[in-house]
Amino acid sequence: MGSEELYPPQRLAAAQRATAAAGLDALLLSPGSDLRYLTGYDAHAGERLTCLVLPAEGDPTLIVPALERPAAEASPAPATGVRIVDHADGADPYPLVTAALGGPVTAVGLADRMWAEQVLALRAALPGATQRLASEVLRELRIRKSPAEVAALAEAGAAIDAVHERMGRWLRPGRTEAEVATDIAAAIRAAGHVTVDFVIVAAGPNGASPHHGTSDRPIGAGEPVVVDIGGTMPSGYRSDCTRTYVVGGPPPAEFVDYYAVLHAAQRAAVAAVRPGVTAEAVDTAAREPITAAGHGPAFLHRTGHGIGLDGHEEPYVVAGNARPLEAGMAFSVEPGIYLAGRHGARIEDIVVCTTDGVQRLNTTPTELIAL
């Protein structure tokens, strides 16, 4: 797909309208997913200022270090209509921000993850301006994915599925989690990702820690192994998929029993997704069967998180989020059961809410996989 499909010029105009409606005079966006969403530029985050100045009215300006101007010009940003201005090493770049704003401002939205030193420098450069979060404006634009974004997420999903399909090549008793993770990371890149965002290989008791990572512990025969992996595609869109495996022998009987509960819960939660259903109702659909089976306290986390240019973004599928789902919302459905000191399991698919239901972007089987 072309960059104009993923990063269409009209996004800037839509963001300007939303900025004005939010009572902000401008957005000031440092490197990160918001800047890339609006311009397509995957900017380097460093001590030299890169900042998209997007006034509610007027022309947008992308301020970049002079040494990074070639990268900015080679990105999709110029096709969106952004003017590029550079600053030399040693020069104060903040007057360029003031000039790009074109006049006094009373309120600006800053990228949520802007470095503190830049936040404070902008406060000094714009002493009359209240600083708010740019997500107040951009959250609503980003939460519903366009068809091109859904296609990019589907491409990412297929790439990570291809890695899970090859797991039998690497996951064997006697190998350490770290050894397996090294092979998986190489496969994630070979499948088309430009970066490996995370590799969790959690065997036996380590599987009871949802964010375990890896260790030098060898994998034992018959141990359940949670494998949660994801990366970023050239498009900028992310993958994230978890499957649970058993290697080299039969798993513990109690594990087989609760995995069946987890499998049913994950399927029920996916099936609950459709427009108008609240995010917390999907969480409930996953949680009720697990609670009914006596494992409620062992489901330690929310059911899901949005995904796109960030690995975690809106909407969050969690109790208390009463927002109704809408077509184009993309998020994970990933219930888990974790028995401390023994083992754990998680099943995760990325799904998209469609106009009349749900589309799974990960299509490998969710049954317990014996290798």
Rank of each mutant, 00 (worst) to 15 (best):
S3T: 15
E4G: 02
E4Y: 08
E5P: 00
P8V: 05
Q16Y: 04
Q16E: 02
A22W: 02
G23Y: 15
L24E: 01
A26E: 08
S30M: 01
P31H: 07
L35Y: 06
R36F: 07
T39L: 11
T50A: 14
C51I: 07
A56Q: 08
G58S: 00
P65R: 00
A72Q: 03
P76F: 01
G81D: 04
D89M: 12
D92C: 06
P95G: 13
V97Y: 00
V105F: 00
V105M: 04
A111K: 05
R113F: 13
E117G: 04
A124N: 10
G128E: 11
R144K: 14
A152Q: 11
A158F: 08
D161N: 13
L171A: 07
P173K: 04
G174N: 04
R175D: 03
A178N: 09
A191Y: 07
A191L: 13
H193M: 10
A208Y: 02
S209A: 10
H211S: 05
G213D: 04
D216H: 09
R217I: 03
I219H: 05
A221M: 12
P224D: 09
I229T: 01
G231I: 03
M233C: 09
M233T: 11
P234K: 06
R238N: 13
D240H: 15
R243N: 06
V247W: 04
V247H: 01
P250S: 14
P251A: 15
P252Y: 05
V261T: 09
A285W: 05
E288N: 04
A292F: 10
G294D: 14
P297W: 12
G308R: 12
D310C: 14
H312S: 15
E314V: 09
N321M: 06
A322L: 12
R323I: 12
P324V: 01
A340N: 13
A340F: 11
R346H: 08
R346L: 15
T354M: 10
Q359F: 02
Q359M: 15
R360K: 08
R360P: 07
R360H: 03
I369C: 12
L371N: 06
